[in-house]
């Protein structure tokens, strides 16, 4: 029992078994961070106490692990989260840190017919209109295409791809050819519903630059592959349903350098 209480901070940080639910983690991290900051700002004894509590809450939110819950044998971590985490872990360890395959699967329902969605996607030159990281795709002959994607620090990566399987209105599969900077493959499937539009499912697999470690670093900078694919799919939906991808880039605000107090 005593040993249990004397866990070092390293033990706590490396104990990644979540037992706190995702919602609670967000609340815990936010509230904890605020308390920590407020406590430090106060600087008095009460402030120090507050920052200790706040730090604990923030840590609990960040790691998803609550020492108190642990002591009380409570596990509120959601099963899917744990499962995802377990999958990610096994991918990291099985494939080695520097040669990981990234595998992403995402679905969205789009209020358009199967045929319309299929036709738009089948013309690969349309893909950069909603895939944020693509600069261009050129069809070189019926089944082959040349892809150019944006890479960090203003560079680009390029590859050739070919369609590997195709069922009209239902499914398109493609794969990069030999010599690609980032070997990758993808499948998009279009499945009609009774009256809710078409379910679109995208599955992508690619060799992340820098392997799984690279993917982890990318994630730190907000470039998580699954989020990227989801964002692309979301833009595809908006483009097909509303004809545009709504944006707030370039709108007015009081943050612009030229903003200044109006002469009242």
């Amino acid at each position: 029992m005593k040993q249990n209480q004397e866990k070092s901070i390293t033990d706590i940080l490396t104990n990644m078994n979540t037992n706190v639910s995702p919602t609670e983690r967000v609340v815990s991290a936010t509230a904890g961070g605020a308390l920590l900051a407020y406590g430090i700002k106060r600087g008095d004894t009460f402030g120090i106490l507050l920052s200790i509590v706040g730090g604990g809450l923030a840590l609990r939110g960040a790691t998803g692990h609550c020492q108190v819950y642990d002591a009380m044998d409570i596990d509120k971590g959601e099963a899917p989260t744990n499962k995802r985490l377990a999958n990610k872990k096994s991918a990291t360890y099985q494939n080695g840190l520097l040669s990981g395959k990234v595998h992403v699967k995402k679905s969205l329902t789009i209020n358009k017919s199967q045929a319309e969605l299929y036709a738009f996607w089948r013309n690969f030159e349309n893909l950069p209109k909603f895939m944020a990281h693509l600069e261009s795709v050129k069809t070189t002959d019926g089944n082959k295409s040349h892809w150019v994607a944006k890479a960090p620090m203003g560079t680009t990566v390029e590859w050739d791809a070919e369609i590997t399987s195709e069922q009209e209105n239902e499914r398109i599969g493609w794969k990069s050819l030999e010599g690609a900077d980032i070997p990758n493959s993808g499948v998009v499937e279009f499945k009609p519903t009774t009256n809710r539009g078409t379910e679109v499912k995208v599955t992508l697999t690619y060799e992340a630059p820098g392997g799984a470690l690279g993917a982890m670093f990318a994630k730190l900078f907000g470039e998580e592959p699954s989020q990227q694919v989801y964002g692309d799919l979301y833009r595809f939906k908006s483009l097909m349903e509303s004809g545009e991808v709504i944006s707030v880039e370039g709108q007015s605000s009081g943050r612009e350098p030229q903003a200044k107090k109006a002469a009242a």
Partner: peptide, 21 residues
């Protein structure tokens, strides 16, 4: 413009532009 809790100010900002069709 919202500048913080209980702090709104009238600022000169750029005119808005058409951003989507």
């Amino acid at each position: 413009c919202w500048m913080g809790k209980e702090d709104v100010r009238v600022l000169n900002v750029p005119d808005p532009k058409i951003l989507n069709e």
